[in-house]
């Protein structure tokens, strides 16, 4: 109860789709925060604490990989689990994300059940 999630994606429509999936997955988030890129996410994380982060990879200003890098270098937010959302990221990118601390990935298209499966184990 009372959990907070942060969705990072440059498409506001995609953020809405993820929000809808979380709701249908029955994941009980009290608060859903949104950021349009990695930089915005870091600024938000400086003042808000969240339980889990869902992040796109290709984004303007700061992409998902650079976000992971900066996050893992910041002791205050280092331990928040991050799950990547991708369309067609190759194994190399996903391996890099993992080496930078990403806890999992969800490939589009995804069902609410898949979201629940990946996130469930992390909460």
């Amino acid at each position: 109860m009372g959990k907070k999630v942060l969705i990072i994606d440059d498409s506001s429509t995609m953020r809405k789709i993820v929000t809808r999936s979380l709701r249908q997955a029955g994941l009980d988030f009290d608060t859903i925060l949104e950021a349009g890129d990695g930089q915005e996410a870091l600024q938000l994380l400086a003042k808000e604490s969240v339980d889990i982060i869902l992040s796109d990879i290709n984004m303007p200003n700061m992409d998902g990989i650079e976000f992971l890098r900066q996050k893992s270098a910041n002791a205050a937010i280092k331990s928040i689990p991050v799950v990547m959302i991708t369309t067609e990221a190759g194994a190399d990118i996903l391996a890099e994300a993992k080496s930078l601390g990403a806890k999992g990935s969800i490939k589009k298209p995804f069902t609410p059940e898949q979201v629940s499966e990946v996130l469930g184990g992390l909460m």
């Binding site: 498409s11 429509t13 995609m14 789709i17 809808r20 709701r23 249908q24």
Partner: peptide
Amino acid sequence: LGMEVEEIDDDVRDAIGEIANM
């Protein structure tokens, strides 16, 4: 998106682009 859509707005255009992408 799990919401009522009554006109062609940016959400609809983004969603159709995203469907093509997927």
